[in-house]
Design a protein around this nucleic acid. Sequence first.
DNA 1: GTCTATAACTCGATAGAC
DNA 2: GTCTATCGAGTTATAGAC
Lengths: 207, 207
Amino acid sequence: MISKIKSIDINTEQKILESARNIFHKKGLSGSRMQEIADNAGINKAMLHYYYSSKDKLFDAVFQEAIKRIFPEISKLLNEEMPLFEKIIYFSDKYISLLQQNVFLPSFLLNEMNQNPQRFKKSFLKNKKIKPDIFIAQIKKGINDKIIIPLDPMQLFINMMSMCIFPFIAKNMIMITYRFSQKQFDQFIESRKKEIPEFIINSIKKK
Amino acid sequence: MISKIKSIDINTEQKILESARNIFHKKGLSGSRMQEIADNAGINKAMLHYYYSSKDKLFDAVFQEAIKRIFPEISKLLNEEMPLFEKIIYFSDKYISLLQQNVFLPSFLLNEMNQNPQRFKKSFLKNKKIKPDIFIAQIKKGINDKIIIPLDPMQLFINMMSMCIFPFIAKNMIMITYRFSQKQFDQFIESRKKEIPEFIINSIKKK
DNA sequence: GTCTATAACTCGATAGAC
DNA sequence: GTCTATCGAGTTATAGAC
């Protein structure tokens, strides 16, 4: 029997996914409309159901893709082979750059994780998402070698993550409170690439 | 003409607001249903429209109340009369305690501010919501008096806010990633009341 | 003030032609 | 694969009795 390759139009599927990404990232699952996703993709609403049988399936594709876009990158950055201080500088710079290219991702992911923890839990159990083990071990070694002061490695890790991510989640509050233009906000984020590691190293470095 | 006092049942209105608060804080505007709010309040759906003409009006009441619950408190804490280091310790403790009593508030407020900046902007223009001026001035004085190292006061302020708020927004991610029970998570939050100010003061204190 | 019933509308999903 | 047309469930909002 000669196998017949199913010729699904890759462009249409890509267009749908890109459109769904745009809408879902901004408005979340419950705030998004299939009609809007279809319009935005330049296709018909029925087509969405042809490629992804339901709204939830389409959302799941976007959600999983978002997880894959962020978590492996965090692991990669944390497991890079370099000295502790250098890594803190490197991580802040690279991680903020990643978020600059995906400004809606933090609130999208964190929000949907809170709405439906199961969705994240499911994919988390399959492959451990964040592996900060090497980074944590590196901090412990720093303490033992008396390069940095004694502290809880997890607290340090959460502090670093907090300072990198928070401004993206609080974007509108910051912009309104400080009367920032978009350009000023961008500069503010940009400057944090250096401010955050400085702030951290000042705190933990043994003198 | 004898004035007739309108006897609106204060209990019903309070019950509605409390129920709406519970649902809206957890699920947001688009994720919440008037039916669920009515059920949760133990009343009829039509009653919601009797007290608050529309879903959006009801949401607005909850949103404005949330703003009033958080922002004046932040201002109050920041404007307390005390030395800089003491204030950083005091703020972290009191602000985290406030969030512990309103665990859904951070994601609720930040998320809805991103969904509809106008709603926040409107109420912000009426009365300036956060007044970190005194705190900022205090930081500048600390730099001049060479008590702390030179730094951008706003960056410091955002760092402090980030570290206090972020764990509440990322609650489920943290719990799943670290396999925390509810109790372990609560202890983690509790310990940050001391960890955060220590971390900050270590960083900025001049030696 | 409170309720039941229902109108009016939105939205996800499907049937069926091409 | 793509479209139009439409169904049917779910949701906000209202009319009207008590």
